[in-house]
Simulated assay, not measured.
Amino acid sequence: MIIDLSCYPTKIPDLAWRHDGPPFTGERLLKMMDGPFWVNGKPRRIDKAFIQPPQGNTIYTDGMGNLTGREAIRDYMAYTVELVQRHPDRFIGCFVYNPRYGTENGAAEIEHHAKEYGFKMVQLQANMHAYRPDRALDWLRPALRKCADLGLMVKLHTGDGPYSIPTEFYPIIREFPSVPFIMAHFGVQTGGVYCFEPYQMALDTPNVYCESGWCLQSRIVEFAKELPKEKILFGSDTPPNEPGMWLRLLEVLCHEPPQGLNLDEDTLEDYFGNNVARMIGIEPTPPPRTKEEAEAYLRDVKASAEAA
């Protein structure tokens, strides 16, 4: 099973990144997820994706358009909710928490989205929302208490200074040991390459996990040698990225050294999605053993979708 942790479908332009072309809608994302992507000589698809609004569309604009507090939060989350309800077999909701809309408002909306729509994850984007996570602990605690109570994963945008350097999240991570924290982008983004920080944090801290996307290929080989296999999770950051290149980043692990490390396909499948499936209560599935088996699976899921 392949599960992508980081996808951002939208029906309006990303207000921060201003990507070229028409909005990257849920329909475009589904078409991309269907691939096929070739992994170890077998055609694959991305079975499920965590989706959320583009971060630029969650920047604090309280009062604009006469929307405030929880109403404003529901407005920026609305398209994600629509897609999760329309495609529950493919999309899993990720709530974006911006404390500037009110910490209690955000915590209440985390609960609402988890209980009403089955959301399984919450994202923190300290850079886009302009707060320093190791100092703004009172802004984060209401949300993290709710995540701990509800059993939600928390994804941390990392890789940018000044507010998304991975170790800046250590105080809140240590305060909530029951919450799984996922270091999105493996500490690599527009602001720098901090990939050794998430790696070392995941080695030292039981509740820290690393999303594979954006990491350097040679570093992921080094890190996979030492990290427990449940600690590496697939995410593509689509858009702007294309998911196939990040599947390839992990597929290389099955190659011979020095580019790979002769990884077995069952562990690769754990990285691709089975690790996350276990974390959210979905039954993991084995990888296809042959090209024919992979082709038959794609035919079956396509026929089921057409019949629905």
Rank of each mutant, 00 (worst) to 15 (best):
N66K: 14
N98K: 06
H87M: 03
P54L: 05
N98H: 11
A49S: 13
D47V: 02
T80C: 14
I59L: 10
F95E: 01
I59M: 13
R70W: 00
I51C: 09
N66C: 03
R74K: 06
E82I: 05
R44E: 14
M64T: 11
G65A: 10
Q55W: 09
I73N: 02
A49Y: 04
A72C: 06
G65H: 13
F50Q: 08
C94K: 08
R44N: 11
G69T: 05
D75A: 13
I59C: 11
E71N: 05
N57T: 00
G41P: 02
H87P: 01
Q55E: 07
Q85H: 07
I46Y: 00
R45P: 08
P43K: 00
C94D: 07
R86L: 13
G65E: 12
V84D: 06
D89V: 02
D62N: 10
I51H: 06
I73T: 03
R86K: 15
P54E: 01
P43F: 06
L83G: 09
A78C: 04
D47N: 12
A72S: 06
K42V: 07
R86H: 05
K42Y: 05
N98Q: 04
F50C: 09
P88S: 12
P53E: 07
I59G: 04
F91K: 12
E82Q: 13
Q85T: 10
N98F: 09
P53S: 09
G63R: 13
Y76N: 04
R70G: 01
K42D: 07
N98A: 06
K48T: 02
V39I: 15
R74Q: 09
V84S: 10
G93T: 08
L83M: 15
G41D: 05
G63D: 12
G65P: 05
V84I: 14
L83Q: 10
L67K: 14
K48G: 05
G63I: 12
K48M: 15
V96I: 12
Y97S: 02
F95I: 09
L67W: 09
T80L: 07
N66D: 11
P88K: 14
I51N: 04
R45Y: 04
V84M: 14
Y97T: 00
L83E: 10
P88A: 10
F91A: 08
C94T: 15
E71W: 04
N57M: 00
P53A: 05
N40E: 12
Y76V: 08
A78G: 06
T68Q: 05
P43N: 02
V84Q: 14
K42W: 01
Q52E: 15
H87Y: 15
P54A: 06
N40R: 14
P88H: 11
Q52D: 10
G65T: 08
L67S: 01
